[in-house]
Amino acid sequence: MKVLFVEDEPVLIEEMVDYFSTQGYLCESASTYARAEEKIETYNYDIVIIDIGLPDGSGMNLIPRVSRSSEETGIVIVSAKNSLTDKLEGLNLGADDYLTKPFYVEELNARLHALYRRKMLKGNRHIIFDDFVIDPLSKTLSFKNKEISLTKKEYQLLLYFIVNKERVVSKPSIAEHIWGDYFDQSDNFDAVYVHLMNLRKKLNQTSGKDYIKTVYGMGYRFSAA
């Protein structure tokens, strides 16, 4: 899951990024309205966490921008103000949840999982295609009840394909989603190719089917029942 944290408190942003990174999230952050706006317009995220009180603007104004960028992106407001007016305004603008500071990162994590299941997985606790079952909570893949060993990147790549099933995705979009900002400085997509081919091989050897098709000159498409 790729998450953007929009927060200007250095201690809190460090705590959230450290915690959610250990939970397997791809974390990015922005401490100002301007930086958050730039990231939202440039990249795609599964979930955006927005603090209302930013030094150079209101986080409320970012909500419609996120919604316009991607209707599937989940939005969670975090604020020190436990105001019904703010809650209603944020939800009416398109936010999915509202959490009042201070909060436990474990509670935020539970809310993110619930939101991800509701928006990206359409409420399902497991993702099923043919005889494969993905458990997003344990981050595992099984085939006919036998677990298939995947690396972290292979698992992230498989989820990205599932969410974008039947769509053509390019190497740059794959790299940006899985490696985030850190891949911007490299024009070498060998790493994408290696992880993709390894995943493709494991799925093929297990089921006898080739789920990942190459669309020459454009990218790759994942097809499954």
Rank of each mutant, 00 (worst) to 15 (best):
S70R: 10
E72A: 12
T73D: 02
T73L: 02
G74T: 00
I75L: 04
V76S: 01
V76I: 15
V78A: 04
A80K: 14
N82V: 03
S83N: 13
S83V: 07
L84K: 15
L84C: 11
T85I: 14
E89D: 13
N92G: 15
N92Y: 10
L93N: 07
L93E: 04
A95V: 01
D97A: 12
Y98K: 07
K101V: 09
Y104I: 06
E106M: 13
E107L: 14
E107M: 10
E107Y: 11
L108H: 06
L108V: 09
N109Y: 11
A110C: 10
A110T: 13
L112K: 01
A114H: 10
A114S: 12
Y116Q: 11
L121N: 12
G123A: 12
I127L: 15
I128C: 06
I128N: 08
F132W: 02
I134P: 04
P136V: 11
K139H: 05
L141A: 13
L141K: 03
F143H: 15
F143C: 13
K144Y: 02
K144C: 05
N145K: 15
S149F: 06
S149Y: 05
L150I: 02
L150C: 04
K152G: 06
Y155L: 12
L157S: 00
L158S: 01
F161N: 00
